[in-house]
C-alpha cells in the first residue's frame, strides 16, 4: 500500500467505494417479484391468498439476501412493477409465471457463480421460483 502523502487530501477519488455486491440486484429483483404478486392480488381478489403467500416468500428472500450481503433491506422495490396486471386472472397468472421463470434463470446463474457459503441460499431461491411457477398453474 502506498504511504499516505499530503496529496491524499485532493485524491479521494482514487479510493473508490468497494464494488457493489453481485447479489445486490437480486434484492431488488426479489422485492420487484413480491410487488408484482401483490399488484395482481389486489387486481384479482380471488387469487389473493395464493399470490400473497408467494409475495411473502419473495420478501423473505430479499430479507435473507440483504442480511447475507450486509445491506439494509430497502423499504420498497427500486421500481414499481413495470406492467399493470392483466385484466383477466388467467393472463395475470401467465404473466407472473413468466416473471418467475426469468427469476429462476437469474438465481440459477447466481448459484452457479457463487462462493460455497452462498450456494445453498441461492439454490433454495432458484427452487422456490420454480415451485412458484407450479403454484401459479
Amino acid at each position: 500500500m502506498a504511504p499516505l502523502t499530503g496529496c491524499d487530501l485532493f485524491d479521494r477519488d482514487d479510493q473508490p467505494a468497494p464494488p457493489p455486491d453481485p447479489l445486490r440486484p437480486m434484492v431488488d429483483e426479489s422485492l420487484g417479484l413480491a410487488a408484482a404478486h401483490r399488484a395482481s392480488a389486489t387486481a384479482h381478489p380471488e387469487l389473493a391468498d395464493r399470490l400473497n403467500a408467494i409475495a411473502e416468500a419473495h420478501t423473505a428472500h430479499a430479507t435473507e439476501l440483504a442480511r447475507v450481503i450486509g445491506v439494509a433491506l430497502p423499504s420498497a422495490p427500486a421500481a414499481a412493477p413495470s406492467t399493470t396486471p392483466a385484466a383477466d386472472p388467467a393472463g395475470a397468472l401467465a404473466a407472473l409465471r413468466a416473471l418467475e421463470k426469468a427469476g429462476q434463470r437469474t438465481a440459477t446463474a447466481a448459484c452457479a457463480a457463487a462462493p460455497a457459503e452462498r450456494a445453498a441460499l441461492l439454490g433454495s431461491i432458484a427452487a422456490a421460483r420454480a415451485t412458484h411457477q407450479e403454484a401459479l398453474k
Binding site: 403467500a53 416468500a57 428472500h61 435473507e64 422456490a128 415451485t131 407450479e134 403454484a135
Partner: peptide, 14 residues
C-alpha cells in the same frame, strides 16, 4: 397440490 395443502410452496425449499 394433490393433497390440497395450502400454500403448496415453502419459502426456502430444502
Amino acid at each position: 397440490k394433490t393433497a390440497g395443502v395450502t400454500p403448496p410452496t415453502v419459502a426456502f425449499p430444502g
